[in-house]
């Protein structure tokens, strides 16, 4: 075949250019650690990468949400446990007073019960680290429970029961309740307790039992020795009923915590899989890339050498 001089001289140029382009690209891949430098390099893999990235981003957010939910639930759990302890103390103090006619002892019980009463009121008005009242439902900026003591009625300024519960999304379509409306634990209707127990109408005349009001009444009257054994039994029964209700809350919290922790394990496992898949798609195989770089280098050198050797050839040199 006839070949013209221009083609003859520039024939190795294309090879050198291709090798240089390949080396530049390999360098970029090795430096960035990415196999795809632009979506056009592999449109199909790009769509999978984008989809996986979106999923990983969502899962990262869900793990944050799960941490938030866990934090809120654990915080509430601590407070609820303490309320449980306080109620146990109140029950013990009331039960201990039964049949005892020693006014000094009764006064001591009354004093201790006052402390318990104030502690309980404080716990019901607990704020979380962000300054929100945790038992006021959605009215997080308003103190929920107020009781002047001495048998006065309790006022509640939180979201009415059963509303005011907040959810956090811990996975796509899965939400977990992270607070409780505790109103029904301390203000409730319970037919088994009867409605006419207390002659001073502390909790009997209304349709709802008001634990704080009763405890306030007990604090005011325990020291005076005017409370009968029947009265005290009613108080104890009321505390028992409240604790039974609180138990339900504790169980709900425990269940929710388990759900959050289980879900987090799943989320993390899925995230690991997706991150691995993402890595497989995105990351350059360094060893293979460096190997190819070597090969390209050799080819480029060969092409350059070939050019250097052949470009000097010309018949004119021999004339």
């Amino acid at each position: 075949m006839r070949i013209d001089s221009l083609t003859y001289f520039s024939a190795s140029l294309a090879g050198m250019r291709d090798n240089q382009a390949a080396i530049a690209r390999l360098n970029q891949q090795i430096a960035s650690g990415k196999s795809l430098l632009a979506p056009k390099d592999d449109p199909l893999a790009t769509e999978r990468i984008l989809d996986l990235s979106n999923r990983v981003a969502a899962r990262t957010q869900f793990t944050t949400n799960q941490d938030m939910a866990e934090l809120a639930l654990k915080y509430e759990n601590t407070v609820v446990q303490e309320i449980h302890n306080v109620l146990t103390q109140a029950r013990g103090l009331l039960a201990g007073a039964t049949g005892s006619q020693d006014t000094i002892l009764l006064n001591a019980h009354a004093q201790q019960l006052r402390g318990v009463f104030n502690h309980l009121l404080g716990l019901l008005n607990t704020r979380n680290p962000s300054g929100d009242y945790i038992f006021s439902g959605f009215n997080t900026t308003t103190q929920p429970f107020a009781n002047a003591g001495g048998g006065a009625a309790t006022t509640y300024a939180g979201t009415p029961s059963p509303g005011g519960t907040r959810n956090i999304e811990i996975e796509v379509g899965r939400q977990v309740q992270v607070n409780d409306n505790i109103y029904s634990v301390f203000m409730f209707v319970d037919a088994t307790l009867g409605d006419t127990a207390d002659p001073s109408a502390d909790y009997s005349s209304s349709t709802a039992h008001d634990l704080l009001r009763n405890l306030g009444h007990a604090v005011a009257n325990l020291g005076t020795g005017t409370l009968t054994a029947t009265d005290i039994n009613k108080y104890v029964a009321l505390v028992d009923a409240a604790m039974a209700r609180l138990d339900l809350v504790e169980h709900r919290i425990a269940g929710a915590l388990t759900e959050v922790i289980d879900t987090r394990a799943t989320t993390k496992a899925q995230m690991v899989q997706e991150t691995n898949a993402l890595g497989d798609l995105q990351q350059v195989d360094q060893a293979a890339a460096i190997m190819e770089l070597k090969i390209r280098q050799t080819t480029l050198e060969a092409a350059s050498n070939a050019y250097a050797r052949t470009s000097g050839l010309s018949l004119f040199s021999y004339l």
């Binding site: 013209d4 221009l6 010309s314």
Partner: peptide
């Protein structure tokens, strides 16, 4: 196609030397 075109139309200096 350029190589084919040039094999007809291009100048080969060795050929010109001859």
């Amino acid at each position: 196609s350029e190589a084919a075109q040039k094999s007809v139309s291009g100048v080969n200096l060795d050929e010109e030397a001859v």
